[in-house]
Simulated scan of single mutants.
Amino acid sequence: MRKTLPLALLACCVLPMQAGFSETPRVPPAPQCLDARQITDTRQPDANTLVIASGADQFHRLTLADACPGVEAARHSQLLARDGWVCGGPDEYVQADQQRCPVAAVAPIDGKTFAALAREAERVNGVATLDAVKVTGPQRGQGFRGSPSYCFAPRYLRSWSSDPGGLLVEVSRRHPGGHGWYRVELAGSCPELARSPEVDFRSRMDLGMICGNPGDEVVATARPEGFADSGLGGHPCTVTAVYPAGRIN
């Protein structure tokens, strides 16, 4: 079980709001800036890098001036920035317990890059667990885990469509993570998916989620009406990448 802190391990410390504050849209002071008030998830793929999801499917890579390991494992973590905007300027810090690490740069990234770096963070850091918890059952391979930040659970599938980029999957509002759509990239061409009215997503890691891990695949499971012998059904198409592609409104 992942140990979580408010705002997904990284809280925002900002100046107090003035009385009479109205909810007007916040305008970033520069295009690359991260709104720390909107953080939903934070991962640390290496000691000098954090990747952050925020707002309506916005993703950023935050580079630290010095090595700052253990942010995900810290008991208390904060992002310190004036007015809540992190732009890579002076006086911006990650506070992780007793460490205070200056921010060197912030850059927007796409959902695919966020997903890849989040998976790397899971592989490197593992999942923090509570003390004195005994778990009995099969042990899964190290590094193969799932998170709604970059994976989707097929049980929440609402609809899907096929295009030259692979599949675009829509999930239910009940799906954790706040993403309404996920892009699924495939290895090679799978034209049978475009003609099949039903598909089945499978994960050999037994995670209950499709993440682009080895063994993830999608299968066309039904023949379209009017095709007595279409040759469809049972041929697996390998999933190579999964990443968020939109937010539920």
Rank of each mutant, 00 (worst) to 15 (best):
D83T: 08
G84V: 06
G84L: 07
G84F: 05
W85F: 08
W85L: 11
W85C: 12
W85V: 12
V86E: 09
C87A: 08
G88Q: 08
G89F: 00
G89I: 01
G89V: 04
G89N: 07
P90N: 09
P90W: 00
D91N: 14
D91E: 14
E92H: 03
Y93T: 07
V94C: 09
V94F: 04
V94E: 11
Q95C: 05
Q95W: 04
D97R: 03
Q98S: 13
Q98V: 08
Q99D: 14
Q99Y: 03
R100G: 06
R100D: 02
R100E: 12
C101Q: 12
C101D: 14
C101A: 09
C101T: 10
P102V: 07
P102R: 10
V103W: 04
V103Y: 04
A104V: 04
A104E: 15
A104I: 04
A104P: 13
A105T: 06
A105H: 09
V106A: 11
V106F: 06
P108A: 11
P108T: 07
P108G: 06
P108M: 05
P108W: 02
P108R: 15
P108D: 06
P108H: 06
I109Y: 03
I109V: 15
I109M: 15
D110V: 09
D110F: 05
G111Y: 07
K112G: 15
T113I: 04
F114T: 06
F114C: 08
A115H: 08
A115Q: 10
A115G: 14
A116F: 02
L117K: 12
L117S: 10
L117H: 09
L117G: 07
R119P: 04
R119M: 11
E120N: 07
E120W: 02
E122S: 13
E122A: 14
E122N: 14
E122F: 05
R123Q: 14
R123Y: 04
V124A: 14
V124P: 11
G126C: 05
A128S: 12
A128N: 09
T129F: 01
T129H: 12
T129I: 03
L130E: 15
L130V: 07
L130K: 02
D131Q: 13
D131M: 04
V133F: 05
K134N: 10
K134G: 02
V135P: 00
T136M: 00
T136E: 00
T136Q: 00
G137K: 01
G137R: 01
G137Q: 02
G137E: 01
P138A: 04
P138K: 01
P138L: 06
P138T: 03
Q139G: 00
Q139V: 13
Q139S: 09
Q139H: 03
R140C: 03
R140Q: 13
G141E: 14
G141A: 12
Q142V: 02
G143Q: 09
G143L: 06
G143C: 08
G143H: 06
F144A: 08
F144K: 11
F144V: 13
R145P: 00
R145N: 10
G146M: 02
G146F: 01
G146T: 06
G146Q: 04
S147R: 05
S147F: 01
P148I: 01
P148H: 04
S149E: 11
